[in-house]
Amino acid sequence: MHTWQMQTAKARFSEVVKQAADDGPQEITVHGRSVAVVISKELFDRLSGNEASLVDFMRRSPLFGDEDIAFERDRSLAREVDL
């Protein structure tokens, strides 16, 4: 992981982002202390589980394909209405 001082990272931000995409995470420091890491969108999606679409998520559900699911609708009024 390459380390950048904050001032340098600010001045060369596009390079920091490009290196994050090409070479992996880029560490940002202030007064020698690590304060942030810049990562690629691809790595972020993989780490956060955002790779799959909502459709893929629903298909992985244990209820997928179950035809016996019945959803009952509450037919009560949502609020009282004065007439």
Results as ranks from 00 to 15, higher is better:
S34W: 03
E51M: 07
R46A: 15
V38N: 03
D45F: 11
M6R: 14
Q5R: 14
D45R: 14
V16P: 05
G65M: 06
K41A: 12
V17M: 09
E42C: 01
K18I: 02
R73H: 03
Q19H: 13
S53T: 15
D45G: 01
S40G: 05
V30D: 04
R75F: 09
E27I: 15
P62T: 06
L83A: 13
I28G: 04
D56V: 02
R75D: 07
S40A: 04
A20S: 09
A21W: 03
D23I: 00
F44D: 05
D22E: 13
T29H: 06
L47V: 12
F57M: 09
V37L: 05
V30M: 08
V55I: 02
R33V: 14
S40Y: 00
R33Y: 06
D68N: 15
G32R: 08
V38I: 15
T8V: 07
G65E: 02
P62R: 09
A78I: 15
D82V: 14
S34Q: 14
V16K: 01
A70K: 15
A52T: 10
L43H: 01
G24T: 02
D82A: 10
M6L: 15
F13S: 09
M6V: 13
T3S: 15
N50K: 11
G49V: 03
I69V: 14
D22W: 00
V35P: 03
M6K: 13
V35R: 07
F44N: 04
